[in-house]
């Protein structure tokens, strides 16, 4: 006699639990959709040193970068190097913003602004007289391609020592600009002082061609190509982040590898 009654109880239980679970599931789906819409439509950050990213995503980018830097960045982590034969003969070229055409070497001097405001004017010959460092490594573009290329120049750490910039090197950032200031990068000091960071004046054992940043460019293997500024016009030091071309266009400021 009580069999039908018991069945309704099970049925009721099934209905009740299904109703509650699907209700909660619906709330979850609505919440997830709402959160996504909020994020997707979130306004861009206030333009400053960085621009062009959704404000919450920029926050996440910065925090994530700091997390990975603290977790893993180590000066002794060297970028893998390759034998000379593996270096590309035709070196890929992506952009000439700030480096159009060829700059007559005699019209070029590197300007370095010291902490006390003094400006050092350094010629290419002064740089070339110092010990040359060569590197053959896998250059990586933020777009996703990479290419083994061969560069020669002055180690940035040697440059600091030779020109008496130790005080400046205690600051947090290096800023570099092209002579026309159309392209510029900001580099954190540990990456700049990394033993494989070069002020390069040679590619494949010849003077840099125009489109690869003649006469002097930055080669910083611990960063994506966007940080490897071509044709350095001036160098500054600061404790705040210097302006950076691609960080103003939504890319991560650090862009480290």
């Amino acid at each position: 006699m009580n069999k039908p009654e018991k069945e309704t109880t099970v049925d009721q239980q099934i209905r009740r639990r299904t109703f509650i679970s699907f209700g909660l599931f619906g709330v979850y789906v609505a919440g997830a959709v709402g959160a996504w819409r909020w994020l997707y439509k979130s306004p861009n950050e206030v333009p400053g040193i960085t621009s062009g990213a959704h404000a919450p995503l920029r926050k996440a980018l910065n925090k994530t970068e700091i997390f990975f830097r603290r977790l893993a960045f180590n000066e002794s982590h060297l970028v893998k190097t390759y034998p000379k034969e593996m270096a590309a003969k035709k070196v890929r070229f992506n952009s000439d913003i700030g480096t159009e055409g060829v700059l007559p070497p005699e019209q070029w001097t590197l300007q370095v602004t010291k902490k006390n405001g003094q400006v050092l004017k350094i010629s290419l010959d002064q740089i070339k007289q110092l010990p040359k460092t060569e590197i053959i490594y896998d250059f990586k573009c933020v777009e996703g391609w990479d290419q083994i290329s061969h560069w020669g120049g002055l180690k940035f750490a040697d440059f600091i020592k030779h020109f008496g910039l130790e005080e400046e090197a205690k600051m947090d950032f290096v800023g570099m600009e092209t002579p026309d200031q159309k392209y510029y990068v900001g580099i954190d000091m540990p990456s700049a002082l990394h033993p494989q960071t070069l002020l390069a004046y040679e590619m494949n054992e010849k003077s840099l061609p125009g489109r690869h940043g003649q006469p002097l460019r930055l080669i910083i293997p611990v960063k994506y190509g966007i940080k490897n500024l071509k044709r350095i016009g001036n160098i500054t030091f600061s404790n705040t982040r210097p302006h950076d071309y691609w960080a103003e266009l939504g890319y991560d400021y650090y862009s480290g590898l």
């Binding site: 996440a60 994530t64 890319y251």
Partner: peptide, 14 residues
């Protein structure tokens, strides 16, 4: 939309 893609990717990877 590369920069946007990277920004989303490096948040949602967490």
């Amino acid at each position: 939309r590369l920069s946007e893609g990277m920004a989303f990717h490096f948040l949602f990877m967490w």
